[in-house]
Design a protein around this nucleic acid. Structure first.
Length: 546
RNA sequence: UGGGGUGUAGCCAAGCGGUAAGGCAACAGACUUUGACUCUGUCAUCUCACUGGUUCGAUCCCAGUCACCCCAGCCA
């Protein structure tokens, strides 16, 4: 558990010490038009942890100022995701609940001569705005009288105009080097029903106008957002000041989180789902929180990952294996360690009685001792991992089974391989071994050392299982694929299914139980599992490959 | 070419005038009922993008240069 420590915390500390604020209040302000992903987790976790660190609190506020694409289904999904991460918002607010107040503040600005209704259409506004290097020019409507602006704005609200016919603009400076200050649009006409307001409004405030007011209304002290809003801060402060908001919030920016081999763009994620390339937003290959959850990540691992990788004003790209590391760390003492064979090879123990099964005590070092103890079956017919057997030992470093060699079966006996049965194509079908009854696990036998230790399952009691190995959805960015669409460049083989077996003790496994199958990685049971056939998703690979 | 932001190891990231924390990754070794885990060690000194300057002393202050990111939605 890492203590939060970053530059924002330093700012907060100072604000508290120097008496600028009494209570730290932050907010997490998603637009309800998408599922939260690991990038959002950085914002959620920092918003909540920073406020918590100072005994303050955090609100969840849906930034629902644009009814297009926004919907109630996302609202619940986002609430669920935040709770899953382990946070409880002090309040759940909606930006749209402040539409009346936002409207009144706009009128105040009009009365102060700081806002005007513009007749220019979208293209004209763009043209008048100028460019990065040339100043813009004033709209012909810029000097309308207060009375006329008031009347026109009322008419906009009353629905007298169609979409795009008029806008309300802040009167700031068309020559500002900061383009955001060149008379930004405050309200646009949108004859679109709102997910909470229904048809009550046909004018909707823009983010730049609504957001600072929302923060001010809620008493937010530190409004944290990503770096691309840095350019908007002067505008944020302008609106708070000119609208005469009694509480003055401040905006601070940090760099977004990127992870290698992880696609986070909203647009791309939508393409993957809509195109049927993945199961849905909770497909384990998706970087969404629901996807990561189904893949088997834990909220604690995500939280530690976010806190430990820190925060700065750099747009960083963190290696994906750093996330894996925090998951391993988290699961190390919590995941049970049963045995599973992903790619089975049949083994016959020639000197073991037909029909007999015995049980061996297996124990793992775990936080929960009970979970670490179980009985596992041993008998005449077993499965081992295909990759754990090779006919001829390639070199002295080979620590698994080969003909003439002896290995320990984990928690059970030494076995020696005597012969191999092949089909007409030369593929190995089964191998024949003998076991040494002297060598049972726990007996203290140490007269000789095995070549190595491998895992197995007893064939007649094992449960069939499917193992889903999800590879990241990476896109191919070679020369040949340049110019192709995102989907065309997508690696198509991102799901490998293996049909194998797990030991019988897993029969009562619940969805999202975590397991570390020895040498094959970390898995969690999928929500689709049944008692007869378990499905496991791989959460992260084991640290090293073999 | 206007404005803003940022440059510390392969990747994150502390340090903010007193001589470069930490994590991940990597490598070497020990241990091991799996090669995992654990443990030990190594990993920025013509060093903090570069070049000058101030200073007894600079990653930190100043000047200039370079590189990368953001801004010309009636998106957020």
């Amino acid at each position: 558990m890492e203590e939060i420590n970053n530059f924002i915390k330093t700012i907060m500390e100072k604000d508290l010490e120097e008496g600028r604020v009494k209570t730290i209040i932050t907010r997490f302000p998603p637009e309800p038009n998408a599922y939260l992903h690991i990038g959002h987790a950085r914002a959620v976790i920092n918003d909540f942890e920073l406020a918590k660190a100072f005994g303050g609190y955090t609100n969840l506020r849906f930034d629902d100022t644009n009814p297009v694409n926004e919907g109630a289904e996302y609202v619940q999904a986002i609430i669920n995701d935040i709770k899953w991460l382990g946070y409880e918002p002090k309040n759940i607010f909606f930006g749209s609940d402040y539409f009346e107040e936002t409207y009144n503040r706009a009128i105040l600005l009009i009365k102060k001569g700081l806002a005007y209704v513009d007749d220019l259409n979208a293209d004209e506004i763009t043209a008048y705005r100028g460019t990065l290097t040339e100043p813009g020019k004033d709209s012909p409507c810029r000097n309308r009288s207060v009375e006329e602006n008031l009347k026109l704005f009322q008419e906009m609200r009353d629905g007298k105009y169609g979409n795009g016919e008029k806008t309300l603009r802040a009167k700031i400076d068309m020559a500002s080097p900061n383009i955001n200050m060149r008379d930004p649009v405050m309200y646009r006409i949108l004859h679109v029903p709102h997910h909470r307001q229904g048809n009550k409004w046909c004018i909707y405030p823009m983010y730049d106008f609504a957001h600072p007011l929302q923060d001010a209304i809620e008493g937010v002290t530190h409004s944290l957002c990503s770096l691309e809003f840095d350019n908007h801060r002067p505008l944020y402060d302008w609106f708070v000041e000119k609208c005469e908001m009694p509480h003055v919030p401040h905006q601070y920016e940090w760099g977004r989180l990127n992870i290698t081999n992880t696609v986070m763009s909203k647009r791309y994620l939508r393409q993957l789902v809509d195109g049927g390339y993945v199961d849905g937003y909770d497909d384990p290959r998706m970087p969404t929180l629901v996807g990561l959850k189904r893949k088997g990540l834990t909220p604690e691992a995500i939280r530690n990952f976010i806190l430990y990788t820190g925060l700065s004003r750099i747009n960083s790209t963190t290696n994906a294996d750093t996330l894996d590391n925090f998951l391993r760390e988290e699961l190390k003492l919590k995941a049970t360690r049963p045995m599973a064979v992903l790619n089975p090879l049949k083994v016959v123990i020639d000197n073991y009685p037909e029909g007999q099964i015995e049980y061996c005590d297996a124990s793992n070092n775990m936080e929960n001792e009970e979970l670490g103890h179980r009985q596992i079956a041993f008998g005449k017919y077993l499965y081992i991992e295909r990759e754990d057997f090779i006919e001829e030992k390639p070199n002295r470093k080979w620590k698994r089974l080969s003909v003439g060699d002896e290995v320990r079966l984990m928690h059970a006996y030494f076995i020696r391989c005597n012969s191999v049965v092949k089909d007409e194509n030369g593929n190995i079908v089964e191998i024949h071994c003998t076991y040494d009854p002297e060598t049972k696990s726990g007996s203290g036998f140490d007269a000789r050392k095995p070549n190595g230790t491998i895992h197995y399952v007893e064939a007649t009691t094992a449960l069939p299982a499917t193992f889903n190995l999800y590879e990241p959805l990476v896109f191919d960015e070679t020369e040949e694929t340049k110019g192709q669409s995102f989907i065309e460049r997508l690696n198509p083989n991102s799901l490998i299914k293996l049909e194998g077996f797990v030991e019988a003790s897993l029969k009562d496994t619940q969805p999202l139980d975590h397991f570390q199958f020895i040498r094959t990685g970390y898995y969690c049971t999928d929500k689709l599992s049944t008692k007869e056939h378990l499905i496991f998703n791989r959460t992260c690979p084991l640290k090293s490959s073999f």
